[in-house]
């Protein structure tokens, strides 16, 4: 059947040197065992290196996701109803940026095999923050009454309410992000927290300017 085989040169015939073979099998077994061992270590070690369920990182990402979500909510109100171009732009900037940051934070929790939500009280990851949560609201968050008022407001009234609420919201958020940066040594979390601090401090300056204009105009 193999009449058309090529006439390449012969390989050494097999099964002639049992001693060398036994050595070969042992080496192969060791190699396989090494691969298996390496894979095992690779599988286990990352679990010790990603933040745990009760870590500062997990607590911060969960709480900041909720905190951000309210900023998005207020910014969307202002974006829809304000007639001041600078506020329409600012609120779009806040809403899109913070919603995207929520995506980062939720994705990291997912990468770490952690739940997107936690069983602890808000701010439990932050030392000495127990008293800062009022009616479930983290520092800087607007109350349901303030949100209801914002939804009803129009014109200059809307601008002033939005800027005032967002200013307080940013201050609370900056404080949390700074604490997370201090407490965490996860470089992704530190990077995002640092960007929040910088961006929101910059926005507070803009908010102050716009507040002055709104109140004088």
């Amino acid at each position: 059947m193999s009449s058309d085989t090529t006439s390449l040169d012969a390989a050494p015939a097999s099964g002639e040197v049992p001693a060398r073979h036994r050595f070969g099998y042992a080496a192969l077994a060791l190699l396989l065992a090494g691969i298996v061992l390496g894979a095992g270590i690779g599988l286990v070690v990352p679990r010790f290196r990603t933040p745990a369920d009760d870590s500062v990182e997990a607590g911060f990402l969960r709480d900041m996701s909720t905190h951000h979500a309210q900023a998005v909510e207020m910014a969307m109100e202002a974006h829809a109803d304000s007639i001041t171009p600078a506020i329409v732009t600012l609120s779009a900037d806040i809403a899109t940026t913070q919603q995207a940051q929520i995506g980062y934070m939720q994705a990291w929790l997912r990468d770490w095999d952690l739940s997107p939500t936690g069983g602890e009280q808000p701010m439990a990851w932050m030392p000495d923050a127990a008293g800062s949560v009022v009616d479930g609201l983290m520092p800087g968050m607007a109350t349901p009454e303030q949100l209801a008022s914002l939804r009803k407001a129009t014109g200059k009234d809307l601008d002033v309410q939005f800027l005032t609420l967002m200013r307080a919201h940013h201050l609370g958020g900056i404080h949390m992000a700074q604490e997370a940066e201090n407490l965490s040594d996860n470089k992704d979390v530190d990077w995002l927290a640092d960007s929040m601090v910088t961006a929101q401090q910059g926005e507070i300056q803009l908010i102050d300017d716009l507040l002055k204009q709104a109140q004088s105009g």
Binding site: F23, A29, L37, G40, I41, L43, V44, R47, D113
Partner: peptide
């Protein structure tokens, strides 16, 4: 000798993998 060593290594590796799988 080598068989025992290799066997032991495989058992340890299996244990580690098993734990890793369990943990994940």
């Amino acid at each position: 000798g080598p068989i025992a060593v290799a066997g032991l290594v495989v058992v340890i590796a299996g244990g580690i993998i098993g734990y890793g799988v369990y943990a994940s």
